[in-house]
Design a protein around this nucleic acid. Structure first.
Length: 937
RNA sequence: GCGGGGGUUGCCGAGUUUGGUCAAAGGCGCAGGGCUUAGGACCCUGUCUUGUAGAAGUCCGUGGGUUCAAAUCCCAUCCCCCGCACCA
């Protein structure tokens, strides 16, 4: 019979809904609360997210069958600027953005609506819900919500959280550099950029070179290289300015002067100065306090840094090539009035020992890469990167670096910078880490924003609490614990407010918006009451309500009166929260370890009492498609809807869950997926055809199969508990099916009770992965109610291990026969004689396995009359038994073989004779426990 | 460099915590056979090398060591992947 996946999906999804089986309310059962991070609503759910989602989904189904009252809610994240920006692009009629929506499957006539950000927050949550529903989601949708001020209830909740954090001193204030558009007079977030996504403010050290009463300023990313300075570079054709900067006179590019004004400097431009005027002069370099010459070069960019560069030819390929050109090009020297003596004497100064390089890495790499001159930009950029990386990570300051010699570059860098700042020999400025262009086509710069608020994750006391929470948590898998420990220590203060985008306004400073990673840290608590709080008018909600619900503070009678509800309503919210909280597992992709999940932990320990701290985190890898990373350039980013359309819900679910587990990247194998539909259908047909049928007699092999099922079930159980779903499928489906095949091969007529039990167990084990087919089977075999809410199979007895072992003996006997047939090239065996192990050998093995040593085992055996009579044979066999570690458990070989005689005969095509005296080649003697002797004619 | 994870038989991937039953599960691929009008569907068998009696040899990144015994323990070493942030 062919399964109509579409029909059964719709059938069961509607029934689940009608019966509200996934709507969770507190009751007398033990609860289990798990959740996953809500996705951002600027597109459809892709299968990577679906994978993360399904891990929660499968666990929730399993736990429900285990008898827990399971809460598995879901919500939609709308905070931040991407939606706003994308909406504006639609409003502007931007082709690229329109195409993105069209490719997602948004119809032509709807596109116009996306000009309004609010429409995104309606459309995508709705679609996500549809896509999750059709895949068989177990969500309690009553509790869903969107974030930001578009949801006034949630908005109040976040305001409460932030007031709370501020009161307790977790929010601090400071200055913060942001990417800035001087034309728009606004911070330019990633997605409002025409160009330069991902670029961030980067800190440069400004080195001050005394030049008369002025300072020539050079910007560097490598302050530690000041010890290797040999000269300054100035572009002779460029115009610089003399400007008063905080009461000093600085010489910098005009562009730089403007930026400095944005970065908290008091800047007044005094006059212009031509680059050429500076050439040939000298200036006193910081730290080394030595006058160094100012030389011409063409790689000084007035838009970058100060337009003036200090030269460290030992470690900067550009600098080395600059010198190289001057030394080798007489016309160049002449042009700027320099003579050979001015440059010939300049030699690199070795300052850093780093792995794989001699004392002048820059010189070396220029040779190695065959760099022609200072205009060979592409190669130079590459060279710079390589030298910087090895220098920074592996380098150690050498003897030329004064008190810093012997320090790692990594440490020296900050120390030297701090020292120069202290001595007023340096300052700092920020530049974007790469070119950033605003949508208004202006090149962006960096501005220091005042009044930036931070969450003080750098605070040691807060970290201590977070560690304490970690120590009491469970992790899935356990290996990620160390990662969290590390991240908690490493995390620093986090800028938690933004100027633009959707979100909740900072309650005490409404010029600011709470950014998207900060308004999503304790909302799991909000799920517990989200379906109730919407019954209160948002204007009536104030902090006292949340204080009561989440912290048990205040007087519920007064609060009830204020919100216009009866007391029971108010107290039931508190009760509901206490019933579900803390959550048992929050599971997400591994990218969220270092931000979201750790933030979640920090915020919980800041706000809630210990007993409400998170109990567990689960983490999974990134889904690969046929071993390739998903990326739009490869065109392999599929949505949940795509896969559902192609393979149906159960196959998609099954394939995703079989794709991987743990922290490794799971891999979606198209090859595998395509065979799964048939496999599920096969199981469906098998179950229907075989349920309720069979023999009443109980044979050995029936008991074996029963034990096998029990034994696998036990393992599958603990695999489910650990969220090891790939292994659970491996054992619970593939291995189970193999056992079934063996059973069917071995038995002439399956036992009805054993078979029924097996079909039930197998279907239940599969049901969290493929719930629709499972329900369909459940119904077809005449079960009441849903399999989704039925009880997980509990072991009906202990698995009989000796029976499992016996069957292994039989398998190995057959393997042996096959081996002999193959090696001896016997085509058509007529008679196979099997000789079992004589009783005395079993005795020897028993003693051997107890004693493990010849000298103690032998006397023990010799105490036995019968053994003594066998004499040498015993001693000889004992030696082999101990040497080959034949310590097997006693099984009834003859019984098993007799029982399986027909089977062996059928497998080999010969007549089987067991323990007959006929033994022409004296094979019988080969029999040892665990291995029968064989003679074939 | 720091932190984390890993290197297993054509590929993927178990096994390593608790050394022996490990030539090493399972899946995929491949080969042969069966079923079939046919099949990319299904079933069976095989898939390191050699082997005319169930064996032997080699093997788990590399080199050492411990042990009666090592994929598994110890030491050294090489290589790969992820993160090193303010990005939804």
């Amino acid at each position: 019979m062919t399964l109509d996946y579409n029909a059964i999906e719709e059938k069961w999804q509607s029934r689940w809904e009608e019966n509200r089986i996934f709507e969770a309310d507190p009751d007398e059962r033990e609860k289990f609360f798990l959740n996953i991070p809500y996705p951002y609503m600027n597109g459809f759910l892709h299968i990577g997210r679906l994978y993360t989602y399904l891990r929660g989904e499968v666990l929730s189904r399993y736990k429900r069958m285990k008898g827990y009252n399971v809460l598995f809610p879901f919500a939609f994240h709308c905070t931040g600027s991407p939606i706003v920006n994308a909406a504006r692009r639609i409003a502007d009629g931007e082709e690229k953005q329109i195409r993105i929506l069209k490719n997602m499957g948004v119809s032509e006539e709807l596109i116009g609506k996306f000009a309004d950000p609010e429409y995104w927050t309606e459309f995508f949550p709705e679609m996500t819900k549809v896509h999750l529903r059709q895949i068989g989601a177990t969500i309690d949708w009553r509790r869903s919500f969107i974030t930001t001020s578009l949801n006034p209830h949630y908005d109040r909740f976040i305001s409460w959280q932030f007031r709370k954090l501020k009161e307790d001193g977790f929010v601090i204030k400071g200055a913060h550099p942001v990417i800035w558009c001087s034309k728009c007079q606004n911070a330019v977030s990633d997605h409002s950029r025409l160009d330069g996504e991902g670029e961030i403010p980067q800190e440069f050290t400004l080195l001050k070179f005394r030049h008369g009463n002025d300072f020539i300023i050079a910007a560097t990313l490598r302050p530690e290289t000041v010890y290797g300075q040999t000269n300054l570079w100035v572009d002779p054709d460029e115009t610089y300015v003399r400007a008063s900067v905080n009461q000093e006179v600085w010489i910098v590019s005009l562009q730089c002067a403007q930026k400095l004004a944005d970065q908290e400097k008091d800047v007044h431009i005094l006059e212009n100065i031509k680059g050429i005027e500076l050439i040939g002069n000298s200036a006193v370099a910081p730290v080394i306090k030595r006058a160094i010459p100012i030389l011409p070069s063409k790689f000084c960019d007035p838009n970058k840094g100060t337009g003036i560069v200090t030269s460290v030819p030992s470690d900067a390929p550009d600098d080395w090539m600059g010198l190289f050109d001057l030394k080798n090009d007489a016309s160049l020297r002449e042009k700027y009035g320099l003579c050979i003596d001015d440059v010939q004497c300049i030699e690199p100064i070795a300052i850093i020992d780093s792995k794989g390089w001699g004392e002048y890495p820059a010189v070396e790499i220029c040779k190695k890469m065959n760099i022609r001159d200072q205009h060979d930009r592409e190669k130079l950029t590459k060279a710079k990167k390589e030298i910087y990386k090895s220098g920074f990570y592996t380098g150690v300051m050498n003897k030329n670096c004064g008190e810093y010699s012997g320090l790692k570059v990594e440490e020296a860098k900050d120390k030297i910078k701090a020292m120069m700042m202290e001595e007023k020999e340096a300052d700092i400025m920020f530049e974007p880490s790469g070119k950033v262009t605003c949508r208004c086509l202006t090149d962006c710069t960096v501005k220091i924003v005042r009044d930036q608020y931070f969450l003080a994750y750098g605070d040691p006391e807060w970290k201590r609490l977070a560690h304490e929470a970690l120590d009491n948590m469970r992790f899935y898998p356990e290996v990620i614990r160390k990662q969290f420990d590390y991240v908690v220590d490493w995390l620093n203060n986090w800028a938690c407010t933004r100027k633009v985008g959707l979100g909740t306004k900072l309650p005490w400073d409404e010029n600011w918006m709470i950014e998207s990673l900060s308004d999503s840290t304790i909302y799991m608590a909000y799920y517990t009451i989200s379906h109730m709080i919407t019954k209160i008018e948002p204007e009536m909600i104030d902090d006292s309500l949340f204080d009561y619900i989440f912290l048990g503070k205040g007087n519920p009678e007064e609060i009830s009166e204020r919100i216009g509800k009866d007391l029971e309503f108010t107290t039931s919210m508190r009760k509901e929260f206490l019933y579900w909280y803390p959550f048992d597992i929050r599971s997400s992709g591994k990218d969220l370890i270092q931000n979201h999940l750790t933030f979640c932990l920090f915020n919980h320990v800041a706000i809630f009492p210990k007993e409400l701290w998170p109990k567990g985190f689960g983490v999974n890898g990134w889904l690969m498609i046929d071993k390739e990373k998903m990326s739009s350039s490869k065109g392999n980013v599929f949505t949940a809807d795509d896969m559902h359309g192609k393979y149906g819900a159960d196959v998609t679910r099954f394939a995703l869950m079989y794709s991987g587990e743990g922290i490794d990247d799971p891999n979606w194998e198209t090859n595998f997926v395509e065979t799964m539909g048939d496999k599920l259908e096969q199981w469906y047909n098998f179950a229907l055809e075989n349920y309720g049928k069979g023999n009443e007699e109980v044979h050995y092999i029936d008991r074996w199969f029963d034990s096998m099922v029990l034994s696998i079930l036990k393992e599958v159980n603990s695999l489910y508990e650990e969220m090891m779903f790939r292994s659970a499928i491996q054992r619970g489906y593939f291995d189970m099916q193999r056992a079934l095949k063996w059973y069917l091969k071995r038995t002439s007529a399956p036992n009805r009770a054993v078979m029924d039990r097996f079909i039930e167990v197998q279907t239940k084990i599969l049901s969290p992965f493929c719930p629709h087919v499972a329900e369909e089977i459940w119904e077809a075999i005449g079960k009441e109610g849903f399999i989704s809410t039925s009880a997980w199979p509990e072991p009906w007895k202990e698995a009989d291990e000796s029976m499992l072992q016996s069957e292994e003996h039989l398998k190995s006997a057959i393997d042996d026969i096959r081996e002999i047939l193959k090696v001896a090239r016997i085509e058509n065996p007529k008679n196979i004689y099997i000789y079992t192990t004589p009783e005395w050998k079993w005795k020897v093995v028993k003693v051997a396995s107890e004693e493990k040593e010849f000298k103690t085992a032998m006397p023990k055996l010799m105490a036995d009359e019968e053994m003594r009579s066998l004499g040498k044979k015993v001693s000889k066999f004992l030696t082999t038994a101990i040497k080959d570690r034949i310590f097997v458990e006693r099984v009834d070989e003859r019984g098993i073989l007799n029982e399986a005689r027909g089977f062996i005969s059928q497998e080999t095509g010969a007549d089987i004779h067991i323990d007959e005296p006929y033994d022409p080649e004296n094979k019988a003697d080969n029999a040892v426990p665990g291995r029968v002797a064989i003679y074939i004619e």
